[in-house]
């Protein structure tokens, strides 16, 4: 069971993420968008959306710090165990709560505003469930890990070791199996979210426009330099009038 959960599932999730994203990009460039609903409603969005997005950016940075940087490094830098946990708790709790508040506002807006709700697909609803589940369990682990709700747990001796071992293709299953249930549940929800990213509107995170900071303001493009669209595939073929049939 542990092997399935902590060795098989993570790799499957990552594989789905990579292959799925590649497939989605090939198949669905036209649907690769934020699908913004700001045109319908902007008063609540103006509060909820930045709250959520900036919150989740901090959360992601926090995850990277907690999972990627080994405890021995921070020890070497002279950051004590307690100091580390206090900053992780404070930063994590603030970011987590603003993310949760943001997503709550956004979901409330989505449900109560008629046009926004009508523009919500089933896909979106499923995505919201996975997202909120991951956020709530994550916030819970932050509080649990700091010893506020339950016994303190140093996830950097369990989850982080397992996480890093995934990338050396030698998953430390035991390390993860020792972690408390709350961490395990959060990890599973996180993996679920990772696996579903390519198939939801969350793909827009991969087009974060960092390049905008470095490109020239005015973009010129030649008429010839169009992307290879299927239209041109029969460029050398005979032009027949197959108006109704498929090829």
């Amino acid at each position: 069971m542990n092997t399935l959960l902590w060795a098989a599932v993570p790799y499957v999730a990552i594989a789905i993420l990579v292959v799925g994203t590649f497939w989605r990009y090939r198949y669905d460039k036209l649907g690769w968008t934020t699908r913004s609903s700001q045109l319908y409603e902007s008063r609540l969005l103006r509060i909820g959306s930045p709250l959520f997005h900036f919150g989740i950016l901090v959360v992601i940075i926090g995850h990277i710090i907690g999972l990627v940087i080994p405890e021995s490094w921070t020890d070497a830098m002279g950051v004590s165990h307690d100091a580390y946990h206090i900053q992780a708790l404070v930063l994590g709790a603030i970011a987590g709560f603003s993310t949760l508040a943001g997503v709550a506002i956004l979901i409330y807006r989505r449900r109560t505003n008629g046009p926004v709700f009508m523009a919500t697909t089933r896909n979106d609803k499923a995505m919201y469930v996975a997202l909120v589940a991951a956020i709530i369990t994550g916030l819970a682990t932050t509080l649990i890990g700091a010893g506020i709700v339950a016994d303190e747990h140093n996830y950097r001796e369990t989850v982080s070791i397992w996480f890093r071992s995934l990338f050396t293709l030698n998953p430390d299953i035991d390390a993860m199996a020792e972690a408390p249930l709350s961490f395990q549940i959060h990890t599973l929800f996180g993996l679920l979210l990772i696996a579903t990213i390519p198939f939801t509107r969350l793909v827009h995170m991969f087009s974060a426009p960092i390049g905008y900071l470095f490109r020239p303001y005015i973009v010129y493009r030649s008429r010839d330099a169009r992307p290879d669209r299927p239209i041109y595939r029969n460029r050398d073929g005979v032009r027949t009038r197959q108006r109704a049939g498929r090829r």
């Binding site: 239209i231 009038r241 090829r247």
Partner: peptide
């Protein structure tokens, strides 16, 4: 460039249709 303007003349005639 004329060939690239094919969409004009046979827009329905391509893969997937």
């Amino acid at each position: 460039a004329g060939r690239q303007l094919e969409e004009m003349s046979c827009s329905l005639d391509y893969d997937g249709g």
